[in-house]
Design a protein around this nucleic acid. Structure first.
Lengths: 187, 187
DNA sequence: GTCTATAGCTTGATAGAC
DNA sequence: GTCTATCAAGCTATAGAC
């Protein structure tokens, strides 16, 4: 709280005045950018639906619409979106209250994408679709956490900060995962 | 520190005496089970190599050898392994020191699996292999974080605590991701 | 709205008796 | 090796002056 107040060049007490308790400030922080990101994604999904019309978008196109906005925002300003996405990774993996926060701020949007995936993979079992999204979520959030683990593991060949490359590899990986489950529609 | 000491029914001061500073205790906690898990995995990899001899194990078999020990340990005692794997998920996604900890305690083992995957997918580019492992890592650790997010997202159809089912879905998802990259060897 | 001041607690670590 | 006692520092939250 003190760090935040001092960075904002205001007094600590003002946080409580304007935002209430610590956790309410936390929610406000998550919400502000979640709304922006979710709008980006809705727009990307609509665009890829229009491109595919009168057909339906492919799995690859849907995954792309879901993930590209994160790449795009992460390169837009200096540190802010970068830090935000790293925070989301930690929340997504927090067993205590992480699930609830993700449910609250992201699931309404995720349902729109699940609808699109259901259309793209009509023979896919509902349960399989949910688990596939879950795996997607883990791969995606870790990617934008930028933990530097891959830097050392790959002996410098790959860099976790290279979101552009990570994104390019991630889309086919995830699509490949989905298609493994729904072979009838792996087109 | 006080919670840990009281759970162990010893005095707080003893933690410092036996383990040193807080972060040294933390490392000791990570190490103890990491060693056990890594040994399980080495054994599983050796077994699947023997089964496949004189050939080499498939991607699915290798992914299975990497992930099954986590499922197996997580069901063995009441809460301990469960909590440990949830902790690992948070460490894996921590951008500050998470990467280093994962490098230190798990990468020596991971290199053994990367060697096996290289054999199974001889035409796979080194860079692609590394990124695929990275995505695997995100999906895997989130799965054992048990955040309950999928419970609500799926309207109760799936449960994050159902590791058995998660594991059964995870192996083909991840293998599908690898194979998307290395189509020449998707057998 | 913004500040000062402070209450009330919790934290990690250690000194020193036994 | 184990305990008691305590330190110095940190935290969130709020009351009350302006």
């Amino acid at each position: 709280m003190r760090d935040i107040a001092s960075e904002a060049e205001v007094d600590v007490a003002l946080i409580n005045y304007h935002f209430g308790k610590k956790m309410e400030l936390f929610d406000a922080v998550i919400m502000r950018r979640a709304e922006v990101l979710n709008e980006d994604r809705v727009r990307a999904l609509e665009e890829c639906r229009q491109k595919a019309a009168p057909g339906t978008p492919s799995v690859d196109e849907i995954i792309d619409a879901f993930t590209y906005p994160m790449l795009n925002r992460s390169t837009e300003d200096g540190e802010h979106w970068h830090n935000y996405l790293a925070l989301i990774a930690q929340i997504n993996n927090n067993p205590e209250w992480g699930g609830e926060i993700m449910n609250h701020f992201f699931d309404p949007l995720v349902h729109k994408f699940l609808d699109a995936l259901r259309e793209a993979l009509p023979d896919c079992k509902e349960e399989d679709l949910m688990w596939c999204y879950h795996f997607l979520s883990g791969a995606l959030t870790l990617t934008f956490a930028d933990t530097k683990r891959i830097d050392k593991l790959s002996n410098g060949k790959c860099k976790s900060s290279d979101f552009e490359t990570a994104y390019k590899k991630m889309v086919p990986f995830i699509s490949g995962g989905f298609k493994a489950f729904c072979r009838k529609n792996s087109a």
